[in-house]
Design a protein around this nucleic acid. Structure first.
Lengths: 352, 352
DNA sequence: AAAGATCGTTAATACGATTTAATTAACAAT
DNA sequence: ATTGTTAATTAAATCGTATTAACGATCTTT
């Protein structure tokens, strides 16, 4: 069963194909009689006419398609962003193509090729590209926006999540609560993550600013992979080790998933309580953080607004030759998983 | 900066455009000298030639695009399926368009329109469509596969998750453990869900089969919405009520998210333990179920295999004219959140 | 040596829309 | 009556590819 074309509609309505196009697209600057307009619309409905986006794209070179790159769906953070982006683009008449790279360069490259072939109208990266060179080159042809961390060497439009400041926020929060023995739980991923680096930097900076020795922070690394489950498991096992040693009073997970895993481990222990004995916090404000009991203190970035901004930026065909770099204003969300350092440590603090 | 076309490549390589097409597509049935092949490839690389998928699609009426419909990203179950689908389609050279309906008929309709315009090569539904009529009509033009529950009235290719059998599985498991006071936690969503209905049906059936009275099962409903957080909250608040009443020994969440919320509530209580006092289980086997402590007993459907199957079906790897209906063989995954009914109830059982 | 058969290549056309420039009709102004 | 102006419509030229049928050249076959 073949679909009706604009030619068919024209024939049925008794007008030219041009007129059909004018009516369908409501082309600005042309005047049409109400009668022809109605005739065309009637014919189109009768034939169930649906414009062929191939032909349309061929002329206009617009695909109304957006490519969204993310490393994985296993951390709910990414589906959350994806959903915000999708919700907004749908309103604007665009579709999003899901490009899940699994932090694999080959896949990433393959997706970039596909996006180029499909002539997507823009690309949004939710992490730092592996193929920076390729992406930069591509950005001359297709608008690209990064929604992650900005890097001075990368001339790409960027909305920074401001990992450094995020790190500072949680660290200061813990320091103000009197914590002086803090662990930073890092689950390693298969590729470099600028975000993770920046967060840790921010934490270290806050400690230095408070005139505290670097030993205040203990950085642990678990070798686990990228799946949400294994990130939580990484947090669990690292916390396991920390409990055995029994020194730490506060824990920062590199993201909420790791923090959640750590929290689970403490909940599972007989003697230790959160936050009375150990405080726990993370980053990203995924819903899991507020579903846990106690709810996890974390950092939020007005994610929905940022996603909308990213879409606006990427669709802005304005010939802004300048590279735009923005930074989010992260917000600390204090919940029940963090509290004052245990008494023993408070005293230690007083002795200083 | 305009992109090179096949004509440009032809000119540079000193051959006809036809030849370029033959080389690029490796068109079967035509023989080409190694030399021309190389010349074309060199020219293509030099000009960074990328075929225009608009023109290509116009001729072939293939978009290499798949539309995937899901209600929300808030339940990790859907991103999980999405990821499996995306992973597999990418391998086949297809892209997926994310169509998130939020269980809103208007949105669903808008997305169907968009998919038709974009001439997607197939549509996969991860839930039961609201606009069944429209989808059925569409399926005459575009292959459609449902990956949810099969319904006898709906002539669409379907891979059934077999909710009925899933319900039976968990119910039998609990009954075998001696539970005779079971609660079924239902968080209501904004549209009818066949899956939810079938699961409950299966549970009831198992109870009947065991010659137990219908009162064995108590069905609770919470009015919460669709977000993952609120589904968990729904589970939390329903369990809150159950704890007050103190009758129930086992709980079935309508999905793992609800079960997780219920588990959180028990963990938060001083006196009750899981599974010693209360058993909890759910459906879907999302990673959250195995991240909780205790890990949650649930039902799995070999999700990845089913997703691949759905893709194969929709791409008509097998040429079938008949409507195909398959059912998954669900698998009960017994973990630490379920155990024998408390002693008091075992005795009650013995008295029967 | 004539007639096929095979190989490598190409000219021409079609796909279904948008868009430019041209055309007609109607009407006002001189 | 002629010209100019505006409104409503259309013919024709693209856009970049896949595909069909045809072509000359070379090689077989008899």
């Amino acid at each position: 069963m073949k679909r009706a074309t604009s030619k068919d509609v024209a024939k049925l309505a008794g007008v030219s194909q041009t007129t059909v196009s004018f009516v369908i697209n409501n082309t600005p600057g042309v005047s049409l009689s109400e009668e022809t307009r109605r005739k065309v619309l009637d014919a189109a409905k009768q034939l169930q006419y649906i414009p062929n986006s191939f032909a349309k794209g061929l002329k206009t070179s617009q695909s109304k398609l957006l490519g969204v790159f993310l490393p994985t769906m296993n951390n709910p953070y990414y589906p959350m962003l994806m959903q915000y982006i999708e919700k907004y683009t749908a309103k604007l008449g665009y579709n999003v193509i899901l490009c899940c790279t699994y932090r694999n360069s080959e896949r990433e490259k393959a997706y970039l090729d596909l996006c180029e072939e499909k002539r997507v109208d823009g690309i949004i990266y939710l992490f730092t590209p592996n193929w920076i060179k390729r992406v930069i080159q591509l950005s001359h042809t297709i608008p690209v926006v990064l929604l992650s961390e900005k890097s001075d060497e990368v001339p790409l439009n960027t909305i920074s999540l401001n990992g450094f400041q995020c790190g500072q926020l949680v660290a200061r929060h813990l320091l103000e609560l009197g914590h002086r023995k803090i662990a930073y739980l890092l689950s390693s991923v298969t590729s470099v993550s600028l975000t993770r680096a920046k967060r840790l930097e921010g934490v270290r900076n806050a400690i230095r600013d408070a005139n505290l020795p670097p030993e205040t922070l203990r950085v642990l690394t678990a070798p686990q992979g990228d799946s949400g489950q294994s990130e939580a498991e990484a947090g669990y096992s690292m916390m396991d080790q920390l409990l055995k040693e029994g020194e730490i009073t506060a824990v920062i997970g590199v993201n909420d998933l790791v923090a959640f895993g750590a929290l689970s481990r403490v909940l599972n222990s007989a003697d230790k309580k959160v936050p009375q004995d150990i405080s726990i916090c993370g980053f990203d404000n995924i819903y899991l953080a507020s579903m846990a009991h106690p709810r996890i203190t974390t950092v939020s970035y007005c994610t929905e607004a940022l996603c909308k901004l990213a879409v606006d930026m990427v669709l802005k065909v304005s010939e802004d030759t300048d590279v735009l770099k923005l930074a989010s204003e992260p917000q600390l969300i204090i919940r029940e998983s963090t509290g004052p350092a245990p008494r023993g440590d408070i005293q230690a603090l007083a002795e200083e």
